[in-house]
Structures are given as C-alpha cells and as structure tokens.
Amino acid sequence: MKSTAKGIIFDLDGTIWDSMPYRIKAWEMAFRDYGIDSDPEVIRLMIGYPGSMLIKKMNARDPSIEMAEERYFSGMFSDVKFFPDVADTFKELRNLGFKIAIVTSSRRAMAERLDIQVDALVTMDDVANGKPDPEGYRKAMAVMGTSPGSTVVVGDIDNDLIPAKALGSVAVLVTHGIKKESKNMDYEIQNIGDLIGLLKKIKMA
C-alpha cells in the first residue's frame, strides 16, 4: 500500500541552526591546537561534510581534531540560536500534516542537546556513510513513513541536496541572504519561513 505521509528533511548547521560562525571558530581553534594553519573560508565551505573530510582537506590526518572541535563548539553551545522563523515554520508544517526530520553531519550527543521536537533525527553516529551518501535520508524516511517522492529536503549547501536528487526527492536550497550556487537544487528560498509558500507550488508524489 502506498504511503500518503508527507515529510520534510532539514539539514541542521547553517540551515535551521545559525551555527556557522561558531563552527568555523571551533574548527580554527582545534586546528591551531594541532599546529595547523586553517583557512576560515575553506572551513565554511566544508561545514556540513563529515569532519574527517574537512581534516583531510587541511592535509591533516589525526581524527582527534574532530573531537577537539566538538569540545570547543560545546563551550559555545548556549550562544547558538535557531534562525528566528524556524519555530513558527515547524508549527505550520505540522498543521499542514508534514512530518519533520533532521539529518545532520553533527554527532548525536550534540544534536540531542537541542530543544526541538522532530519525528526523526539522524546524525553522523547513525550512519556508515555521511552526506552526500543518501543513507541518512533513507533512514529518516523510514522513520517518518514517507517515500522519496513525498519528501522535501532543505539544506544550505550542495552536499545536502545531492542525496535528495539521487533519491528523487525535491531539493530546496536556503540561502539566508547569502549568494549561493547549486547544481542540484529544484528551488531556492531565502528564509526557512519561505518554505510554506513554496510547498503550495510543489507537486508531491
């Protein structure tokens, strides 16, 4: 029997959670501890990828650098906020009958500290392969009871949208006022709240 459930999968960092400046700073501090000079712009472009990929990008190999970043970021945690329209948007999505999931490259211990209710939470600790592999999205859809055709994916970088397109889901890029490019987006919105109007235009399976 075909599922009629509708779902939205959100990325976390930089998509619904305004964490990018803090993540960049935490990575810079972590790399500095290991005697590595880092470029904040390279770090910014790699946020959302598994930490191991960023470490490799900086020509480093020690996986403990990621744990150092998590410790530094944990100390900044109370300063990080959700984008201001997220709570109202989530409430409206539920009123419209959508289930909500977060699929993130962050660790579960960190993500579970967030005061946000979702139907599915898939973290880096829950998958064998992080984004752009679609494994995390498949897991989230299984929990929500949705199909790729009845699921919309929202992210702030191409790495979030590549697996959406691979599965056949609608891919939405959120820019938060920053000029971005994506070869994999179906639609672009500036703010999370813009998603509500967009959903009225999208034909879902």
Rank of each mutant, 00 (worst) to 15 (best):
R138Q: 15
S64P: 03
Q117E: 12
Y137I: 02
S52W: 00
A109N: 12
D85T: 05
K81Q: 14
S105Q: 15
N95Q: 15
E112A: 04
S64T: 14
P134Q: 11
V103T: 13
G130S: 15
G130E: 08
I100S: 04
F73S: 02
G51I: 04
K57C: 09
T104S: 15
F83C: 02
P134I: 14
V86M: 05
E70V: 14
L114M: 12
A87D: 10
S106V: 12
D126K: 01
A120G: 06
L54F: 08
E112R: 13
G97N: 09
R107A: 12
A68T: 09
I102P: 07
A109C: 08
N95P: 01
P134A: 11
I65C: 02
I55W: 07
K99T: 12
E135C: 02
S74C: 09
N129K: 13
M53A: 08
V80M: 04
V103R: 09
N59C: 05
E92G: 00
E70N: 08
L54D: 06
Y137P: 01
D119N: 14
I116H: 01
M110I: 15
S105W: 14
K56V: 06
E70D: 11
L114V: 09
D125Y: 09
E92C: 04
A101R: 06
T123C: 15
E70C: 06
K81L: 10
A68E: 08
S105Y: 13
R61L: 01
V80F: 00
Q117N: 12
I65Q: 01
M58R: 13
N59I: 01
D125Q: 05
A87R: 06
P63M: 09
R108F: 06
S106P: 09
L93Q: 06
R138S: 12
P132E: 11
L114D: 11
K91H: 10
M76L: 15
F83I: 08
K91R: 13
F77R: 14
N95W: 03
A120D: 02
R108E: 02
E135Q: 03
